[in-house]
Amino acid sequence: MTELLKLHGIVEAPPDAVAAVLLDVRPGGRSPLATTGRTAPAESPQAPPAESNEARSAERHKAPPAGSDKAPPAATGQAGPAESDEFTVTRDGSVLTVTVDRARRSVTLQGEWWYRGVTSVEPDPRGSRIVHRVFDVATGRHWAVRFVSRGPLNAAPRAFADQLAALGRELGVNAWVEED
């Protein structure tokens, strides 16, 4: 994975307040990163076969055989939020996987064969620092990324400035892009 672009700016609001807006990325959400289009749960190759909560609960809480001194098995597996923080959205004919990492205050959009954009909120003495990075995640054909990435990379600074302005408006605070 190669970083192609890094942009950053300031929003004069606490990181948790900025993250509450920025991470609301589902279609119709408050985030300026909110996508339009249709959503679907993201496919996860590591996900176990679907099984109902009731079936898992009944198996975990099944009483041991009579006369046995064995305790019921400990709960295993993973619990996820009721509404997944990973989903796909179809936009302009492209399927993007959107991942929200609340602990890191970040949103990742990955699509096509080469693109990953990560936007995160970090504490800053002036409020919050918003960092947007674009990565080449192609497996092979890196030479082709130079050509297909030109449009998105050229459009990214204006889009980032617009997103910061929208965050500032939503929160009623100042926001600006920092120049290197």
Rank of each mutant, 00 (worst) to 15 (best):
E3W: 12
E3S: 12
L4V: 13
V18A: 00
L22H: 02
L22G: 03
L22K: 02
R26Y: 07
P27H: 10
G29V: 06
R30M: 04
S31V: 07
S31E: 08
L33H: 05
T35S: 13
T36R: 14
R38P: 02
T39P: 11
P41W: 05
E43T: 15
S44E: 10
P49E: 10
A50Q: 14
A50L: 15
A50S: 15
E51W: 12
S52W: 00
S52K: 00
N53D: 07
A55D: 01
R56I: 10
R60M: 04
A63T: 10
A63N: 05
A66L: 07
G67K: 04
S68M: 06
K70P: 07
P73R: 08
A75Q: 12
A82E: 14
E83N: 13
S84D: 11
F87S: 02
F87T: 05
F87D: 05
T88N: 11
V89N: 10
T97I: 14
V98L: 13
V100R: 04
V100L: 10
V100F: 07
R102E: 06
A103W: 12
A103H: 06
S106C: 08
T108H: 12
T108Q: 10
L109M: 15
Q110L: 10
W113G: 15
W114T: 06
W114I: 08
W114N: 13
V121T: 06
P125R: 09
R126Q: 11
S128T: 01
S128H: 01
R129A: 02
V131T: 03
H132W: 15
D136A: 11
V137R: 07
V137S: 04
V137C: 09
T139P: 07
R141Q: 11
H142F: 10
W143I: 12
W143F: 06
A144N: 14
A144C: 09
G151W: 12
G151L: 11
L153Y: 05
N154Q: 15
P157V: 12
F160C: 06
A161C: 06
Q163F: 01
A165S: 00
E170I: 01
L171W: 00
G172F: 01
N174V: 01
N174L: 01
W176M: 04
E179L: 06
D180L: 11
